[in-house]
Write a protein that binds this DNA or RNA. Structure first.
Length: 495
RNA sequence: GGGCCGCUAGCUCAACUGGCAGAGCAGCUGACUCUUAAUCAGCCGGUUGGAGGUUCGAGUCCUCCGCGGCUCACCA
């Protein structure tokens, strides 16, 4: 027995065959439209405002999303990238004979071009009275339900095009995402930053502590890693004399997937010579504020039950004070792993015995502090163990000039005064490798070329990393990173 | 990887403590010249994610598997 989908597809294939037999090309090459639907609606408003009673002729093109047949008159909704407009096929019997057959074979989902005159129906709907139309692409599959749209999460991700056709909210989210990136580029370009592109395939990974993806280059017969950060190459460019650089690029981390993590995501990193982390704080505030106003038209964004206001200045609190405030633990009083573990256990906090002191501090931040940071908050001054690429504070060798910005309970930015002492940098890399991989230097992957670059001299520099996906989540009120990634990674579905 | 939840027509959803798998939309046929979730009449449409099991009888209970969601773990 044929399924319903097979029936529908067969019917549409029959229509396709009929159209071809009658000389209609169901997939022609181009169509000359004079207006988008949005422009057509605007044009109608203008001519109404000017009292111009002459009927304006337009041609538009898009997908038919609804058909309402009234007998001799038929209404249809047509949507393009700018919006939608209603079509009126009035007294279809008056159409040319060779148009009637194609008209009868039109389906919801087909893409057509239509020309005609603008009018407003008595219920006020902007409409084009269609004089002639052209089939531009025959659709062979039924669209999701018109009223509820497509709600199955898995299908929305696997067939994002259906999500975009059916769900206004999805369209808006990804338009916003695009606008956010444009606004960031505008902001940075106006400040004299140079946008650059650096390698995705790298012989050694650095700039973050994350598990990389590995791949293989056949001709060179060697393995490469997909980058886990942009940092080390951008700082080479600072060495090279580009004083302000940025990159907006995809990075890859071979780690767990969650509502806040995705194996490939988009990072903005900026580096500015002769600046320090305080300059970066100010720039970040201004940038997010500018982006919010440009994209949302407001400094405030709704995030679940909260309203986040990005207007500077943001609250600033040291990591030590933040953890003390929210967990009651002053980590300065517990300067060793043993003492900190003891203190945490005394407060009934479960402690992973594999974690070192820095990781425990990080856990305190993630568990007790971050979820509370709804309004934009800059948490600054981190222990040196957590930050191998950051410059230590002048008055305290154990702390570095680093901050993370949080909003809506998410970490949205990480920044520091860049360590530019090549000897100290090498030492920090080696300490880090020992910590992670032990004394077996064969296992270490240290970016020697980066260290070499530092030896030529890098100016004092302020660096910044912003998770674009998370920023977009905040600005579009989404709680899952997959909602702001067009084609999220999913397991293959076997038949 | 662990825990919990989910998967029924193309889409959105029903189906009591195990008892004939149903509706709306979409589609097809017909009526209707300003409709807009059009309306009205009729019709078509199912491997209930997959494989086993229990039972007279399984969408429903059990086991295994697949995919997804949430959550924990992981995560600079």
């Amino acid at each position: 027995m044929a399924s319903r989908l097979e029936n529908i597809s067969q019917q549409r294939l029959d229509k396709l065959r009929r159209l071809k037999e009658n000389g209609t090309d169901p997939y022609p090459h181009r169509y000359l439209r004079t207006h988008t639907t949005g422009q057509a609606v605007e044009l109608l408003k203008q001519s109404e405002a000017s009292g111009n009673n002459k009927e304006t002729e337009v041609s538009i093109a898009g997908r038919i999303t609804a058909i309402r047949s009234m007998g001799k008159s038929v209404f249809a909704d047509l949507r393009d990238g700018s919006g939608k407009i209603q079509l009126l096929f009035q007294d279809i019997n008056k159409y040319d004979k060779d148009q009637i057959r194609p008209f009868k074979d039109l389906d919801i989902g087909d893409i057509i071009g239509a020309e005609g005159t603008l009018l407003r129906t008595k219920s006020g709907e902007p409409t084009i009275r269609v004089a002639d139309f052209t089939l531009l692409a025959k659709s062979l599959k039924p669209l999701p339900e018109k009223w509820h749209g497509l709600s199955n999460v898995e299908t929305r991700y696997r067939q994002r095009y259906l999500d975009l056709i059916s769900n206004t909210e999805a369209r808006e989210t990804f338009k916003t995402r695009s606008q956010v990136i444009t606004a960031i580029r505008t902001f940075l370009n106006e400040r004299g930053f140079l946008e650059v592109e650096t390698p995705v395939l790298q012989p050694s990974v650095g700039g973050a502590l994350a598990t990389p993806f590995t791949t293989h280059h056949n001709a060179l017969d060697r393995d490469f890693y997909l980058r886990i950060a942009l940092e080390l190459h951008l700082k080479r460019l600072i060495v090279g004399g580009f004083d302000k650089v940025y990159e907006i690029g995809r990075i890859f981390r071979n780690e767990g997937v969650s509502t806040q993590h995705h194996p490939e995501f988009t990072m903005l990193e900026t580096y500015e010579a002769y600046a320090d982390y305080k300059d970066v704080m100010a720039m970040l505030e201004e940038m997010v504020y500018a982006v919010s106003r440009q994209v949302l038209g407001d400094s405030k964004a709704t995030a679940g039950k909260d309203v986040i206001d990005f207007k500077p200045p943001w609250r600033r609190i040291s990591l030590r004070d933040a953890i003390r405030e929210h967990s009651g633990i002053d980590f300065v009083e517990f300067p060793t792993t043993e003492k900190l573990v003891e203190k945490m256990r005394s407060l009934d906090i479960e402690v992973d015995p594999k974690k070192n002191w820095a990781k425990l501090v990080d856990e305190l931040l993630k568990t007790f502090v971050r979820p509370k940071l709804i309004q934009p908050t800059i948490v600054f001054d981190y222990p040196i163990e957590m930050s191998p690429l950051a410059k230590s504070k002048q008055d305290n060798e154990q702390m570095v000039e680093r901050f993370q910005a949080h909003a809506g309970g998410l970490e949205i930015a990480n920044a520091y005064s860049e360590l530019n002492d090549p000897i100290e940098q090498r030492q920090r890399f080696e300490d880090q490798m020992k910590e992670r991989l032990g004394d077996d230097e064969e296992e270490w992957t240290i970016d020697e070329d980066f260290l070499l670059a530092l030896e030529y001299g890098m100016p004092p520099t302020g660096g910044l990393g912003v998770g674009i996906d998370r920023l977009v989540m905040l600005l579009t009120n989404h709680q899952a990173i997959r909602e702001v990634i067009l084609f999220p990674q999913l397991r293959e579905k076997s038949e």
